[in-house]
Amino acid sequence: MTTHIERTEAIDASEPSPGGYYDRFGPLQKQADKWLTVGIILTGTFFVGPIGILCLARSAMIMRKAQRLGQQIRPWSITIIGTIVLIDASINFLGWGVDLSPIHDTQLGLTFDSGWGAMFDGAYYVDFNGHTSIGGSSAITEKAFQLIPVLIVMPMRIVAAVAFLQMRRVGYDYLIITSWMYVAMWVGYTASIALEFDHRLGNTLYGVTGWWAYNLPFILLWLVLPYLMTIEKRQFVSNGKPTVLPPPQEGPSR
């Protein structure tokens, strides 16, 4: 027997939960998520990344323990997808934010940007802080592209991924939206760096191969899209309570 379930039947079928979204999970899930969030933020800073790894490992251990104790936890695949999106968005948000903002004038910014530029993008050390009107990278297109991730895509994606990890419907919806934005942004960014090949890739230690080796893990995040578009979206709710699936309908199968 089959039954057709409308989208609206599966969500908003119950009253808002006073305990919020974590009522769906066991008590250890919230504790694990605190470590997860701290670990992702630290990893995303680049500067204190090794400490972030320890926090992420601690979070995974807590979730493993919760499962062994028989507590309900978020599906691991949701945790994995949400985590990589958050790490990636944090890295891009802060990395590009350092160059877009006056941080590029600080010794910390100069060390990070110029070192990274020497390895992968010549515009970050050849004529760095000396070509564009707002400083930082000397590639004009790079400065234009920085506005898109720093002001729009990455902050949206961070918020969407946090909501996705809480299994909110809005997080699921906006993760799809920002994933398409992400695809569009990477196509434009990759084209811009290729168009200024001599200046940007020609002036690096590791050249084209190095750039792709470094950026492929980030570009590969477009694979999140087919995952998101084929999972059961009714897992994601609007009011913090488990999805209520309607009973089987009587009558002939459709």
Partner: peptide, 24 residues
């Protein structure tokens, strides 16, 4: 991979060129 990249980029830069304005 992302954790490794994010965690060891800065230590790599520091050990290779030190703290400050490199290769300028």
């Amino acid at each position: 991979v992302a954790m490794v990249l994010a965690s060891f980029t800065v230590p790599y830069i520091l050990t290779r060129w030190g703290y400050g304005y490199v290769l300028k």
